[in-house]
Every structure is written in C-alpha cells, then in structure tokens.
Design a protein around this nucleic acid. Structure first.
Lengths: 212, 212
DNA sequence: GTAAATACACCCAAATTGGGTGAGATTCAG
DNA sequence: CTGAATCTCACCCAATTTGGGTGTATTTAC
C-alpha cells in the first residue's frame, strides 16, 4: 500500500513551541504522502477550525496555554470523531497517558523519538494501528497485569471480582452456585486479609494492588 | 545498544506445530544475539523445566494440547516471574488478547507477521517495550476509550463511576459534596436512561457500552 | 498431618437500596 | 427568550443488604 499515489494524509498540529511546531511542519510537508493542513499553538483555535480543516490525523501536545491537551482530545472527539489523534509530548507520566487514551487518543509518542518515528506513526495510525513509544506501550500493557502475589485465594478473588461489579451477596451466590452464607464467609476473610471493613475499601485496595 | 557483544538472549519456545516451532528455532539461532535454550510442544513440559532453562524471553502459543497458553502464562509468572512472555498466535480475538495480557504476557504477535518482526519484538521486549501487532495495539488502546455518545450527563457519569467502585449513596454524596437525596435522584435517572433496575445491571450495562 | 481453602448455619442490628412523587434553580441551545 | 435538560433537595415506605460474631465439616495442598 503506497500513500504516494493516493490522496495525501491531511494533518493538523497543535503545539505551542514555535520551533518544534515549525520543525514538524517542514518535516511532514517534505514527505509526498502528507500534507499539513493547519498548525495551531493552542486547542481553542484548533477546535474552532477542525470541522473545516478536516484532518485525518492530529498531532496534539499536552501542555498547552489555555485548554490542555486532554480536554482538547475529548472535545475534538465530540465534534469531529473521524480524526485520529496522536499525542506528542515530553510527559511519560502514567496518569497522563491513561487520561489521554481514555479521552480518545489513538497513539502516544514522547518527544525524544527520532523524527522518522513520527512519519511511521502517522502511517501506522492510518493503517489501523496505535503507535506508542516503547515505554508507553509497556505502561499500557502493564496496566492489564494482575498481581501474582495476591494474598487472596482464587475463590476469594472470584468473589471480590463479582462484588466489584456491583453484585449483591445473593447475586454472587447464584453466579457461583454456592450458598449466600458461603459468600459471606469469603467476604469476611477477604476483609480480614485486606485489613478493611467495607465493600468500597476492599475494592479500592484490590484495584490499587491489582488483585482484580 | 548492541546485543551481539554481550550474553545472548535466552529464548524458550512453546508451540505445538512442529514446522512452525522448528522454523522459529532456526530463524532465531541464525541470529548472533539469540540462543534458543529450549522448545516444547506443550505447556506442561515447559513449566517443568522453566526454572532450569531460565529463559529471558518465552514465545508462547495459545492453542495447545493440554493446558492452554493463558493458563501457561499465569503459571509461568507464578514460578518464574523474571521471564518476559510474548504470545505468538493466529487468534486476534479481543477476549483472548486481554486474558493473555491480564495473565502476564508482555507482548502479543499474530502469526501473519514477517519473520523479521519476531526478531524486533524480542529486542523490543528486552529493551523495556511491549511488542504488539498493529491490530492488537489498536484493540488495546481502544479498550481505554469511552463512548462519546453517552446518554448520561457528566454528573450522572461521575455518580455511576463512584457507584462502580463499591461506594454507597452516602459515600458518593460525601465525595461530591451533595446531599444523599440528590445522589438518589441521579441514580434513579441513570436507571431510567439505561433501562435497568439495580446497581449491578447499571454497572454491567455501563461497562459494556463504555460509559464509565 | 497440619494449614489453608471451601462450604454452610444462625444470630442481630444498622445501613443501604429501589420506587414513588414533587419541586426550585441553573444552564444551554434553538 | 423560552423550553428542555440538568442539578439540586425533600419525604414516604418496605424489602434487601451488609457487617460482625461464632461455630462446624469437608477437601486440598504441601
């Protein structure tokens, strides 16, 4: 599949650093397959024009004057969901990564990448992928992994899992084909092991320690 | 960083197809930086030897005779957590991908990749990354994204979010600095909008439709 | 064979939940 | 500017849920 012989990929940039922004414009426009249709130093201006710019891909910074990038991603997805958004930032902070992805980012790159990586990333996201820097990919995958040293038995974990989905003791008992009293015993033991005294505390602690 | 001048990366294979397994062995051993220390056609044999094989990286198939790969990943992580596990399979099924990652896989490749991608992936995972096929990465990232056409208002979403963490009405009211009665009203409206009649149903539906 | 895990029983009181109905204040789009 | 949606609070009621206590029996794993 070659993009050279078809319509160029339309790109919008949102980046407040003039040097970097202009650098990206030049880098991308050099490439036959790409066309930078707009470049802004803030989200507000970008959002006002996104529906006329109609970009295929948006490269979005996070730290911006005025509205931040996370909010910007959310709003973009609301008014022009067709756009694929790649975050390009210096921040490798866990929290920010997940917030960006939850808000609708389709990729996440850190600025210390070689510039060629940017080109690849745009091709990747247009080809149905989700370009991420090495460390980001690891962060994302690690977020799925459970704690392999759980103090809870597998049955207890099962019970807590159902409890965390809002099920009542009765519900859980039915789901596991055991008596409600047995569920209660399990939950008492879970509370004792986790040193908590309520559903909410148990779920919070279990989430934090990746037990469920 | 060159692996050629240091200790080779030790690799174990778990793959029941003889042709593919032997193909991987040859491909990897051709490479100076790698050494295949063992290759099995089932998980059971692998698990018996992993502590003596001491692989850095394990390439694991999912569909296997006897114990399946997901179970295999879990057990491997229990008895030899040091190993980095890359799933190599034909299955691109959502459920399987997430189960594998939850179980402890650090990467996920589909078998239709060019063989060179396997080499890259092993280097990637040893370098702190999480190698994934294009479609898999998209699946994983998409799993974070919320539905941008939620029928719920932002306040209602906030309430449902707290409810899904096991909080009681009282808890939620305190957390949002509003009255318990207001929380009740929100929840009644949530139930009406989602056409459900209980906490568990609301959470289930909200999760399914990615409202929270 | 001992410890952990799993399962069940009964007591009790406080808290939670779901449903109904109504209503004032604010915000936002047409 | 107006009407719809949202956010806020109030009071009624009954059934269910929850957390804590204590005790027991069977199975499983090391």
């Amino acid at each position: 599949m070659s993009y050279q012989n078809t319509n160029p990929i339309k790109i919008s940039l949102v980046e407040d650093d003039n040097i970097i922004r202009e650098g990206f414009v030049m880098l991308l426009n050099e490439n036959q397959g790409f066309r930078v249709v707009s470049a802004y130093n803030n989200c507000e201006d970008f959002l006002r024009n996104v529906q006329t710019d109609k970009p295929n891909v948006v490269l979005m910074d996070i730290e911006l004057p005025g509205m931040n990038g996370i909010e910007g991603i959310e709003r973009t997805k609301k008014i022009y969901p067709h756009a694929q958004i790649i975050v390009v930032t210096v921040y490798e902070n866990d929290d920010l990564v997940f917030k960006a992805l939850c808000a609708g980012a389709g990729g996440y790159l850190t600025k210390n990448m070689p510039s060629q990586r940017l080109i690849e990333a745009i091709r990747e996201i247009m080809g149905g992928g989700a370009p991420m820097s090495t460390n980001i990919a690891r962060l994302v995958v690690a977020s799925f992994q459970k704690n392999h040293n759980s103090p809870l038995s597998s049955r207890e974990t099962e019970v807590l899992e159902l409890l965390s989905r809002g099920k009542s003791y009765t519900n859980i008992a039915e789901g596991l084909f055991i008596d409600k009293e047995t569920v209660r015993t399990h939950i008492k033991n879970i509370y004792w092991k986790l040193e908590v005294h309520s559903k909410a505390e148990a779920i919070e602690k279990a989430m934090k320690e990746k037990l469920i």
